[in-house]
Design a protein around this nucleic acid. Structure first.
Length: 485
RNA sequence: GCCCUCAUCGUCUAGGGGCCUAGGACGCCGCUCUUUCACAGCGGUAGCACGGGUUCGAAUCCCGUUGGGGGCACCA
């Protein structure tokens, strides 16, 4: 198995899904999961993207058996470090007549492409330089032209058994001779990918459906490599996963708002929540079960059960799954995961001080059932951690609830609590109910609303009595007094 | 334009010829619980793209149509 993204831009969810399925298949079958980085295009690849890629995979928690940082017998695992291998392969292909030099200029190619298409044909390479004589080549060289290397496609239909789609056939002549080495000598993905798969002993490849039409080219090249004795003599089996589309049913690109993996990380998705959701796009556990762990998925993953039709990414459902995953976490685990988010909001230090840790441990149960993503906890819990000087009440909520009547309620609440002996949830509740509901004859909703806003700063907050207990007597009373001043 | 591919509620899916008056989940709408918001529970809404076959019987098999998606680079 292998997974071989190229480090261009931010990793996106489609990439995560592909990695997940490859991982699951490797784990299920007991195979080796190879992670290779396809960075052959210097113009598009960057070290930053490379780091981002590793970072994203580590965050997701998908471990690989061979690849960057873990090594392996088939390294190096970055194509930029394997250039001599490709140069050698290209030369052997050329020497064997399986590839040839083509001197067409980009302008000429473009012109012929447009013409071919206008004539109703396919727009691939027309094979003009397929059988140049030595004299013709010499003439082009004399003009100062630089040749690319094109692979000579065999004149036969190519049929392969797609792991998810079954038999797929491309008729002879449908796939044109493709460039494997640029005029500047740099190899292209079309060459590096099969060469690496061959030399790394890759047997299975799961990738996006967008690569389906390039598969016959790769298979043809693989066969040539086998003939030449390059690599381990195995043509991998391919499986093409359905595309993950965005809301407009268009291919989800890394430029889409919800496309980038960093979005999910920053919004507070659990990696296992995102992965669980992604697994549902094109695969199902079976029966009515939608929630499972990575290990359960690996145990159950059957490539033949992968659905071939494209799936639209639904953020709402992704959040719902994530919320369910959060609810399945134990409280300490949840608290631990909240720390980075609270810290980046400036509410706690990372690691938290003992006092912060204590408060967090006590407060986490209050949000456990109410959040779908981790960042929601930051909004909900902020009032507990914020410096008193920095505490603010949401102006809209204040306007709605803290009117004259509301302030009267807050005042009564303060008086009742000031007289309270024991400061705990039950006592606070009893005192407030007595003073506001029974004393003032208010409906609970109207009684606690103003108090909630004064204490938490918002109309939506964790449960009020527990919040007051955690806030403590001094701070609690101060919050109630503040709007009265 | 050419090639490839896909087709079950709005979305993700279960479904391998009779267990299907098509099941689940998200969403949406009600209700219950309730100090807000949630959670949880209950109920509801909504679908086999169309047309031909095959068969005693098709969501399931075949063909076609239509529609969607992808590809057609000296990107990957």
């Amino acid at each position: 198995m292998r997974f071989c993204p190229s480090p261009t831009g931010n990793p996106h969810v489609g990439l995560a899904r592909t990695a997940l399925f490859n991982w699951a298949h490797a784990r299920h079958t007991g195979g080796t999961f190879v992670f290779r980085v396809e960075d052959t295009d210097a113009a598009r690849d960057s070290e930053e993207s490379y780091q981002g890629l590793l970072d994203a995979l580590r965050w997701l928690g998908l471990d690989w058996d061979e690849g960057p940082e873990v090594g392996g017998d088939h390294g190096p695992y970055r194509q930029s470090l394997r250039m001599d291998i490709y140069a050698d392969a290209a030369q052997q292909l050329l020497d064997a007549g399986r590839a040839y030099l083509a001197y067409d200029s980009p302008e000429e190619l473009e012109e012929r492409r447009v013409a071919a298409r206008a004539a109703g044909g396919a727009s691939g390479y027309d094979g003009l330089h397929r059988d140049l004589t030595d004299e013709q080549r010499a003439a082009y060289e004399a003009e100062g032209r630089q040749a690319v290397v094109r692979f000579r496609m065999p004149d036969e239909a190519i049929t392969f058994h797609d792991l998810v789609r079954g038999e797929v056939t491309f008729e002879a002549g449908q796939v044109s001779d493709f460039v494997i080495r640029r005029a500047n000598g740099q190899p292209l993905y079309t060459l590096t990918n099969p060469v690496d798969d061959a030399t790394m002993g890759i047997t299975h490849v799961l990738r996006g459906e967008d690569l389906l039409s390039s598969t016959p080219r790769q298979i043809a090249l693989h066969r040539a490599l086998v003939d030449l004795g390059i690599g381990e003599g195995v043509v991998p089996q391919f499986g093409h996963l359905p595309l993950v589309t965005g809301s407009g049913n268009r291919k989800l690109s890394k430029r889409d708002a919800g496309g980038s993996l960093t979005y999910y990380r920053e919004a507070g998705f659990l990696p296992e929540g995102l992965l669980n959701y992604l697994a549902l796009l094109g695969w199902s556990f079976g029966g009515d079960q939608e929630l499972f762990t990575l290990d359960e998925m690996a145990a159950a993953f059957e490539i033949s059960r992968v659905n071939p039709n494209p799936a639209q990414f639904d953020l709402k459902k992704c959040e719902a799954i994530n919320g369910l995953k959060i609810r399945g976490l134990d409280v300490d685990d949840l608290a631990r995961r909240l720390v980075p988010y609270l810290a980046s909001a400036g509410l706690v230090s990372d690691p938290p001080t003992p006092e912060q840790q204590q408060l967090l441990t006590a407060a986490t149960p209050l949000v456990h059932e109410r959040i779908a993503v981790l960042t929601e906890a930051v909004d909900l819990l902020g009032f507990l951690f914020v410096d008193d000087a920095a505490f603010t009440v949401d102006p809209d909520d204040a306007a709605k609830v803290l009117d004259e009547a509301g302030l009267g309620v807050v005042s009564a609440a303060r008086d009742a609590l000031a007289a309270l002996g024991t400061w705990d949830t039950a006592s606070i509740e009893a005192a407030l109910r007595a003073a506001l509901v029974e004393g003032l004859g208010l409906k609970p909703r109207n009684a606690f609303g103003p108090v909630r806003v004064a204490v938490s700063g918002r109309r939506v907050s964790p449960p009020l009595f527990e919040s007051l207990e955690l806030l403590g007597r001094e701070r609690g009373l101060a919050r109630l007094s503040a709007p009265l001043a």
